[in-house]
Simulated scan of single mutants.
Amino acid sequence: MTPSLSGFPPSQIRRLVIKIGSALLVDPQGEVREAWLRTLVADVAARKQAGQQIIIVSSGAIALGARRLKLPKGGRGSLEDAQAAAATGQIALSQCWASLLHERGITAAQMLVTLDDLENRRRYLNASATLERLMALDVVPVVNENDSVATAEIRFGDNDRLAARIGQAARADAVVLLSDVDGLYSANPHVDANAMLIETIERIDARIAGMADGGSASGMGSGGMTSKIEAARIATGAGAHLAIISGKVDSPLSHWSDGGKGSIFLAAQARGARKGWLAGRLTVRGRIVVDAGAEAALRRGNSLLPAGVARIEGIFARGDVVDILAEDGRVIARGLIEYDSEEAARIAGKRSEDIATLLGHLPRSVLVHRDHMAMV
């Protein structure tokens, strides 16, 4: 593991996001694992004392609420049950965090967000501003997805990716995911005794993505290694490191700092704020498939012209976010489209000088401008 980053020390990591999953925070009977949580809060307090700013992304509301409402299947039997459990459990979850942090002289703040809050540019900036102000006031924000209003179609679905997006919005230096495993392995360590821990990941390529296992070991949470690698893509693309470490030990942050195992995905060169937000989005309205020549032009920093487009997929309006794909299906870029889907389909593959005749009006010069595009 990279020695200078092991433990994400306050001297190097000014602002840190810590994500805690349901299986770590809530026991199988639906009660908070308070003794363990106190050790984590002690870690948080020590880091704050050393000058590190902390943001917590906490799961657990559905698991806590399901027990109080006596709902089957841990509150996940239906969307309505999950929403009711979340609404009930969130009160207990926030009270627990506020009480334990208060014992250490720390003020907690609750932030509940939906996928739309971070996919909509204006609301994303509002969330970013709120986080910045809370940091300035020396408060620890405790963030969770607002599952009481989220739908099956429009939600993060796991707090790994939420933590990465919150890290991006907060301009955090690093994100740490407390997990039921102590890092990324070459195979699932629960079933393969020969699986090897990958301590440092400099680039997320097909080999790294192929090591993921989508299952949640506890059955209580919603994320697996696949969601953690997707979170790492978002965080590292925003210029933040991301670590996966074990949360199954007491004082997990101290344990890691003292030499415990873990995996670190190293930050890539940070994009501009707007392009970082684009690249980290989880929803798009359409897909633009381009030929090899257009792919090469995009990688040189050019805008996307209609001539290089092989086909248009989806229904979208001007200004919507679309993915740009190579012919083999790889997503190579994401950007704001300058045409609606009907017009884009009409001019796909056409030369610029022919577009005015096809559309009957003076066209915009590009399909996606380079200033509104992020390579992924």
Rank of each mutant, 00 (worst) to 15 (best):
P3G: 01
F8H: 02
V17C: 08
K19I: 09
P28V: 01
V32H: 06
L40S: 12
V41H: 11
R47E: 06
Q49C: 10
G51N: 03
Q53F: 06
I55W: 11
S58F: 02
G60W: 04
R76K: 15
R76N: 14
L79S: 06
A82C: 01
Q83M: 02
Q83P: 01
Q90E: 11
C96E: 08
A98C: 09
E103S: 10
E103P: 03
L112D: 05
D117H: 11
L118G: 05
E119F: 02
E119A: 13
R121V: 14
Y124V: 09
L131P: 04
L134V: 07
P141L: 00
D147M: 00
V149I: 14
A150Q: 06
R155A: 04
Q168E: 09
A170H: 14
A174H: 08
L177G: 00
P189V: 01
A193Y: 07
E199K: 07
I208N: 10
G214R: 07
S216K: 11
S218T: 04
K228N: 03
A243W: 04
I244W: 03
K248V: 14
V249Q: 15
F265Q: 02
L266G: 00
L266F: 00
L266T: 02
A270V: 12
T283Q: 11
T283R: 11
G286Y: 12
R287W: 13
V290T: 08
A294I: 06
L298N: 05
R300L: 03
G308S: 05
G308D: 03
I312A: 11
G329V: 09
R330N: 11
E338P: 00
S341K: 14
E353C: 04
H361I: 07
P363S: 02
P363M: 09
V368G: 12
H369S: 10
D371E: 13
M375I: 15
